[in-house]
Amino acid sequence: MRGHGFLLANYVPGQSFIHRAPLALKFLLVFGCGLASFIVVDWRVSLAVLAGLCGLFLLTGAGLKKLWAAIRPLAAVLLVIGVFQWWMLGAPTAARIVLNILVCVVAASLLTATTPVQRLLDGVVRAAGPFKRFGADPERFALTIAIMLRSIPYIAGTFADVRDSARARGLERNPRALILPVFITSVAFARQTGEALAARGLGEAED
């Protein structure tokens, strides 16, 4: 369970024009979608944008399966939100809210599916460059982001593993037994990761 994809599609090698598009442009797309999702008030506009993004995603050659894999973890949540908002605020608003979330997820996946992690890191390092004079260390900043992104699926996997082992010990009704191991495992994982980085000479402060 430890490695299932989570929210964002992993990089898929390819040569499409989206793969070759500048990173800044792709980032602006993601950023713009996040911004627009609060300005757009008509669900039909959201639907059109979503359809466009899905089209772009398929053009990258990553395939429908990857697209579905990026959305699937949220499907249950979105269903709950959709039904609840429908009941509270009516169908058009509910549709708009759910569609806007999907727009953001697909846009972010479009970025991650067409950009290798190393290029993302290079991009972050370049973008954070100007902050160097305030004592920031772009390399370490980028490294921390990379570890965070890689840890989300690990932690989600830990939730599942821990649930199973609690069940095996007949403890599934004890919230402490359910939650605590997730955090213990996560902290242990964080320290192992930190130690492994240190051993490789990565992530230590340059003086």
Partner: peptide, 8 residues
């Protein structure tokens, strides 16, 4: 697994 920090 504690040593490999990247997805691939």
């Amino acid at each position: 697994l504690s040593q490999l920090v990247m997805p691939t």
